[in-house]
Amino acid sequence: MREIVFDTETTGLDPKSGDRMVEIGCIELINRMPTGETYHSYYNPERDMPSGAEAVHGLSAAFLSDKPMFGSKADGLLEFLQDSPLVAHNASFDFGFLNNELTLCGRDIVSMDRMVDTVALARKRHPGAKLSLDALCTRYGIDRSHRVKHGALLDAELLAQVYLELLGGRQIGLSLAADAGASAPNGDGRIAAAGAVRKPMGERREPRPHVASPSELERHAEFVGQIENALWRS
């Protein structure tokens, strides 16, 4: 089963009032485990950046001024999302901004039937508890020390870990399937290039043998023979 955990950064809280999406970060899960494949992009919102929003994510109008418009990168994003379920924290917010951008560039919106809201999952599992991403990371012992400001890809990586914990922990993804060779994301935070799809790095190594050699067995027997009053001799 393929799922996408994603997060967005925006100019504000309401796309209906003219706020725009300025960043998206996506993490691919297969059978509830990260594969290492991600999608990340910044977007030029074609408007100013309110100081309150910039204080949250640190993305200024000057930084975003040379970034692509959402419409020019929509095909790459949709290709990555495919028809997979989309996991987000307070997902109606992120869906609202994503669908607003798709509408503005004349694309079909993403069906809300694909939405998986981790806030709703957390509320059922921990009623009455704090449900922010920070609070859930603290609850599950997930390191967020590198999260100085909000960032879409970084927050998606943290949320992917929280999502697995909400579903019962990482052991739910253990499998003997022949294709269970996916690696976890490297967690290096933001990617400078817009529209980048990152694949796992390095080659998969064969398991090393762990059988003692005849000379090692001989030395072990010699060492054990020197032990006085050994329990196994009584």
Rank of each mutant, 00 (worst) to 15 (best):
E203Q: 13
E228P: 07
Y42H: 14
G52F: 03
H210P: 00
L174A: 05
P45D: 02
G151P: 01
L174Q: 06
R204V: 04
G189K: 11
V211E: 14
T38K: 06
R47I: 08
E23R: 12
F97S: 01
A135W: 07
F97D: 02
D7S: 08
D75R: 09
S17G: 01
E9P: 04
C105V: 06
R198D: 02
I142A: 06
S183F: 13
H89I: 02
V119Y: 13
D14V: 05
S145P: 01
A221R: 15
D143T: 08
S92P: 00
M69A: 11
E79Q: 14
D66Y: 04
L78E: 08
G141Q: 04
D94R: 10
F97T: 05
T10I: 06
K130M: 05
S111R: 08
P34K: 04
L131R: 13
V87M: 03
K199N: 12
V110L: 15
M201Q: 14
G52I: 08
D134W: 00
F93V: 04
R208C: 09
N229C: 04
D188S: 14
Q171T: 10
M69K: 14
S132K: 13
Q171E: 12
D19Q: 09
A55Q: 11
R190H: 12
P34Y: 07
F80V: 00
P207C: 11
L102K: 07
L98H: 07
L154R: 12
A129I: 00
D143M: 05
P214T: 06
N90F: 11
R190Q: 09
F63N: 03
M49E: 08
L59F: 11
G181A: 07
G36Y: 02
P214C: 08
G187Q: 09
I30V: 15
A74M: 02
T35W: 01
A156G: 08
G71D: 02
E46C: 12
A212M: 14
V119A: 06
S84M: 06
